[in-house]
Amino acid sequence: MSFTPEDIRPAALEEGKAREIQRDMDWLLERRADFVAVKCPACGGAGQPAFTKSGFSFEECPSCRTVFMSPRATAQIMGEFYGRSTNYEYWDKHVFPASRDVRKNRVFKPRVDRILALSAERGIETGVAIDVGASVGIFCETLRDAGRFRRVVALEPNFAQASTCRRLGLETLETDFFELDTFDEPLNLITAFEVIEHLFSAVEFLARCHRLLAPNGMVAVTCPNQLGFDIQTLGTDSLSFDVEHVNMFNPAALTRLFEENGFSVLECTTPGAMDASIVRDAAVAGQLSLDGQPFLREVLLSQWERLGPPFQAFLRDNGLSSHMWLVAIKR
């Protein structure tokens, strides 16, 4: 089901969002002296300098091609950052309400449908589910209303978004996932949408998931694919490279990360719907020149109505979209 960037990120709200992002960025920059260097978050290899953006340094792993911020904020700084972020508060008040219906019907309902289908195929008990980084609770609400899971829990550390989850009548934990040492019963499903790219340690995240999950429990994540079309085409100008996305994986690297940390990957796909639209919008706005790119000019501009949709389908079906989906079970 296709949609455009305007459907989920209305342009009229961009100025306010940019203002809050800058405030968050300034807060992090003030603490840059406390940042620490890290190895590749996917394979543990040494990275090589790649680029600097907005005062933050990124490296690329020559082994698995993961791009990552190093040095980066410590786990403690990150926890404080997400708990007080004014940008997330802005999304809660403005962006999510303006795009809620599109997000629920075109983003989260298909995710719920796929998770329920996999649960049935694999004989996974639909008992307790927890959504890590639940944001404003759209996924949890959709999963709860499907009526298949006995208990659906929203875990959200940001105070504004946790409050929104509670207003939806969701069982809500306003805490950091890394503070959840135990749960009152084994979890059958852990979801983390657009979360793993933000974490100080993806390995520690998977270790905690493994500990909390019941045998044969399932985990589903989404995150950017840094080898996807729009990210590769826009390069460092891509909005996916920002101060929060400290881990930029790709399908092979993310699969390896899960397989080496106690999980069997059921599927890793790139079901993105907006890559072509994002690059087209940048070209139309004059932010990207397609001079010397006759193929892209033909697909994205001259023949957009005819060629745009099948081109996006090609990206999606061949692992070339910048939006990545992975589902794995506890091994």
Rank of each mutant, 00 (worst) to 15 (best):
F183E: 02
R167F: 12
E171G: 03
R166Y: 08
R166D: 05
A154Q: 03
V195E: 09
R150F: 12
A129T: 00
T164K: 11
T175P: 10
E185K: 15
L173H: 04
T172C: 06
A134I: 03
I196W: 01
Q161L: 05
L168R: 14
D145C: 08
T182V: 12
N158G: 10
A134R: 06
L168H: 14
A192W: 04
E141L: 10
A146Q: 09
V132P: 00
S135H: 14
L173D: 01
P157S: 04
R144S: 12
N158H: 13
N188D: 15
A134Y: 04
A160I: 02
L173M: 13
D184I: 09
L187A: 03
F159Y: 15
V132A: 05
L168E: 08
I196A: 07
P157H: 02
L187C: 00
S201K: 02
D145E: 15
V195H: 07
S163R: 15
G169E: 05
N158S: 11
E185A: 15
L173A: 11
T175K: 12
V152L: 07
D184W: 12
T172V: 09
A202R: 03
C140P: 04
I130C: 10
A146L: 13
A162M: 06
R167Q: 15
E185M: 14
D176S: 14
F183A: 06
L143F: 03
A146C: 11
A154E: 04
S163A: 15
N158V: 08
I190Q: 01
T164C: 11
P157A: 04
V153D: 00
L199Y: 00
D176H: 13
V195Y: 07
R144H: 11
F178V: 07
C165I: 01
F159T: 15
L155F: 02
Q161V: 03
A192E: 00
L199S: 05
V132L: 03
C165S: 10
D145P: 05
L168P: 11
D145M: 12
E179D: 14
L189Q: 02
F200E: 05
L187D: 01
D145K: 14
